[in-house]
């Protein structure tokens, strides 16, 4: 049933250019206007009109003018509700979209910022089968709507067509429009599940250097139990308390140099998956790392921004 409906819709869009006018993606911001808002009665609307028709015939048959007046009032109010439904979409603006981060196969979170010059209620946004409702209140006429988009593979993924609709106020009519924003979202590669640790070239050198040179060592206050040979006597002479040379941090978190060229003999995707896993481990261990990719060289660094930069670079690999 559902598949048939989709085929029917595809066929209709192929035949009717008016339906496909807004099929192509557009640049933000997208503002809804009268030429792209469609209105159809809902199932309840159809049922209600049948009921009104029955009531009309009854009122006419019994020549009951008060009842006729009531039927006319209900009918006119229903018609007016159609305009209200239109008005709840007209002028709505999708200002920008912020995408979160996600690895392929996991849903990516999108934040859509809508704004408008007047308050609106009960606007719904459909993406595939998921539906979200939001309102824009009178004071802050901006709404941030969060949506999740399923992903399949790494790289730039175009946003699908979103349907924004509303059956406000009475649920008799449904005003709807397509939103097909242009921006794509970047999906990160999925790391491999397990594999060898990186061959860290810089490990030994860095380790030794840290133990040989006093200059690089950090100084901290003496704590009971610190070995005597670590006390920085010269520096302590200038202070009221004892200072101790601290080697701990650099010792256990050596710098990783991740390099595309090291992983020869593997497929491109496998290389990317492995690099992604290493990047993830480095991030989890708060370890400094640098990444070399064909065409890209990211110097050593750490932190979420660095991780995102590296993952973006991986995601953009051809």
């Amino acid at each position: 049933m559902h598949g048939m409906l989709q085929r029917l819709q595809a066929w209709a869009e192929g035949r009717l250019p008016a339906l496909t006018r807004y099929r192509r993606s557009e640049n933000l911001p997208i503002e809804l206007h009268r030429r792209r808002i469609y209105i159809v009665p809902t199932g309840f609307g159809l049922g209600f009109s049948v009921l009104l028709l029955v009531m009309l015939v009854g009122a006419l048959n019994y020549a009951n003018n008060a009842a006729l007046l009531l039927v006319c009032l209900l009918g006119a109010a229903s018609a007016a509700s159609m305009l209200v439904a239109f008005r709840s979409l007209d002028g709505l603006r999708l200002a920008h979209i912020r995408a979160g981060h996600a690895i392929a196969g996991e849903p990516i979170e999108l934040t859509l910022a809508f704004d408008s010059s007047r308050p609106r209620q009960a606007i719904r946004l459909d993406l595939g089968h998921a539906s979200t409702a939001f309102a824009l209140d009178a004071n802050a006429t901006t709404a941030n709507v969060k949506l999740t988009l399923p992903t399949t593979q790494r790289g730039w993924q175009a946003l699908p067509r979103l349907r924004v609709w509303s059956s406000w106020p009475l649920g008799l009519f449904r005003a709807w429009s397509w939103l097909h924003p242009d921006p794509s979202v970047l999906v990160w590669p999925r790391p491999e599940l397990s594999g060898p640790p990186p061959h860290a070239v810089a490990d030994d050198a860095r380790h030794l250097r840290l133990h040989q040179g006093d200059e690089l060592a950090a100084l901290r206050d003496y704590r009971v139990g610190d070995p005597q040979r670590q006390i920085a006597w010269k520096a302590s002479a200038h202070h009221h308390s004892l200072l101790v040379k601290d080697f701990e941090q650099p010792q256990s978190r050596p710098h990783w140099q991740l390099d595309w060229r090291q992983l020869h003999g593997m497929g491109n995707e496998a290389r990317i998956a492995r690099l992604a896993r290493w990047l993830g481990e480095a991030q989890a261990q708060r370890r400094n790392c640098s990444l070399w990719l064909p065409g890209t060289d990211i110097p050593a660094g750490s932190g979420p921004l660095h991780y995102a930069r590296c993952m973006n670079a991986l995601a953009c690999m051809p």
């Binding site: 109010a77 209620q121 009960a122 409702a133 309102a135 106020p169 009475l170 649920g171």
Partner: peptide, 13 residues
């Protein structure tokens, strides 16, 4: 009656 129908809609002020 009409207010009830309105109340069925999601995300209201």
């Amino acid at each position: 009656a009409l207010a009830t129908l309105r109340a069925l809609e999601p995300a209201q002020l």
